Computed example of a mutant assay.
Amino acid sequence: LYGLLQLLKREIGEKVAQGTRLSVRLTHEDLANACCTTRVTVTRLLSQLKKQGKIGFDHKKHIIVRDLPHIG
């Protein structure tokens, strides 16, 4: 899932103060279908990614992929 979000970040993302906003709204079902998994799994993984600070959401529920610092 995180790899898919990184791909979408590069392809359709737009820079915002918090990171890179995915310019389309994707449902958990959309993401599940793209990853060949279940909606419940995507919901759990998105929650984990949010807790880890890797993603966030704006007021319109668009996913914001955080820009993590580069190491090395």
Rank of each mutant, 00 (worst) to 15 (best):
K15I: 10
V65L: 04
G19H: 13
S23G: 03
G3H: 15
A34I: 11
T38I: 11
K50N: 14
H59C: 05
G19P: 04
R39A: 09
G72M: 01
G56A: 12
Q52L: 14
H62C: 02
K50L: 13
L26Q: 04
V24Q: 10
H28Q: 15
Q6A: 09
L22T: 09
E14Y: 02
L1E: 08
E11T: 06
H28R: 12
T38V: 06
Q18L: 12
S47G: 12
E14G: 03
G3C: 06
T37D: 06
G56L: 09
V24D: 07
Y2E: 05
K15G: 02
Y2Q: 15
Q6H: 11
R21Y: 04
G13W: 03
V42C: 02
L26M: 14
T27Y: 10
E14K: 14
K50Y: 05
C36A: 04
G3V: 08
L7V: 15
I64K: 05
K60W: 14
C35Q: 04
L8R: 03
F57D: 05
A17M: 08
G53P: 00
L49N: 00
N33E: 10
V42I: 15
T20A: 08
D67Q: 15
Y2L: 15
R21K: 12
L26V: 02
Q18K: 15
P69R: 11
I12Y: 07
V40H: 10
H70L: 14
R21P: 00
N33H: 10
K51N: 13
S47Q: 12
L7H: 15
G3T: 10
S47F: 07
I64L: 09
L22E: 06
R44M: 08
L5E: 03
A34K: 04
K50I: 03
L46A: 06
N33L: 11
I12T: 10
T41E: 04
Q18F: 02
T20H: 06
V42W: 00
K9R: 15
S47R: 13
V65K: 00
L26Y: 09
T41R: 11
E11L: 13
R21H: 01
E14P: 00
L5C: 07
R44P: 00
T27C: 08
R39Q: 13
K50C: 08
Q52V: 02
I12E: 14
L45N: 10
L31K: 01
G56N: 15
L5G: 01
R66N: 13
I64Y: 02
L5P: 00
K61C: 08
L7R: 12
R25V: 07
A34N: 01
T37R: 08
